[in-house]
Nucleic acid binder design. Structure first.
Lengths: 149, 149
DNA sequence: ATACTTAGTAAGATTATATGACTATACAGT
DNA sequence: ACTGTATAGTCATATAATCTTACTAAGTAT
């Protein structure tokens, strides 16, 4: 209180603008999964679901994208395999490599996550305006494309 | 390869739109700090810097916002105190509580982080267009305000 | 064929986070 | 003022997550 008249509109720090929504969505997903009965999933394991591609991905590949070591990713994948969320199959294009794939159980997790996200997006669209939300989505999408290029 | 003609523009999953830029910025900050000589900082400790307020914050408060337990936050704060990045002072308004404050060394870290972020924002503004970047910032800012309310 | 690179594993240490139980202070309602 | 409840933080302990260093095996490129 007793703050000086604001000359600037309190410019928020850039990283927080991404981090806060990320945290919010993460926590929604976590809750959603718990409600749906997936009570054995740990936050760190999300980085697998986050980075796995429909046709399957290599552990090393996912490790890079998640910015953790391949050993760490290996550990997460191994756990998820034991829990029945993923399976590993040989990569036909490279004898050294294996592809990590979602099982049906794994797909079910993705399903729940997607529903939660859809719900969050709808909620936010109500608050910001549907149009703005769409614009926001497009801009973010462009940004992500730039970052990945 | 051999994908069907895209009927939809490949709608990216919502959380990734926040997570990817967050990761990118995080890694830039990490590198920036290393270059500036702050080689003893661990990623987890960022959640302190991320959530500490200028006048100081309570550990419990920061734990909530970072979505970790107060014990975990206590551990991070303790480390940072030993390293000289923060200090703890009694909270005059509550005898049980203490305020965690940045030391000069802690402020120096923030300084570096802000510079890195400013640089990233400029870089992104070049790619997306200055105008769009500003719009993106505004929208995100609105969204964060909504989330925190 | 030889050297270099890459995918993944092994062993072991460290860092990060959580649970449950606890102390001390604060607050709220009689 | 007294009593009960809530809150800030700690202690002890367990587990999860991540890293470093070193290694094996398969691929790639001269």
């Amino acid at each position: 209180m007793s703050k000086r008249a604001k000359t600037k509109p309190e410019e928020k720090i850039l990283i927080g603008l991404f981090y806060t929504p990320y945290l919010a969505l993460n926590s929604k997903i976590y809750k959603g999964l718990e409600e749906a009965g997936f009570t054995d999933l740990r936050p760190a394991q999300f980085s697998v679901f986050q980075h796995i591609e429909p046709e399957g991905s290599r552990a090393t590949e996912m490790a890079e994208r998640a910015q953790i070591t391949k050993q760490s990713m290996g550990y997460l994948v191994e756990m998820l395999e034991k829990q029945g969320y993923v399976q590993q199959v040989p990569d036909p294009t490279d004898g050294r490599a294996r592809l990590v794939r979602l099982t049906d159980r794994g797909h079910a997790v993705n399903q729940v996550a997607e529903e939660v996200l859809q719900q969050a997006e709808t909620e936010w669209a109500k608050k910001l305006g549907k149009n703005k939300m769409q614009k926001l989505r497009n801009m973010l999408s462009n940004l992500v494309t730039e970052i990945n290029s």
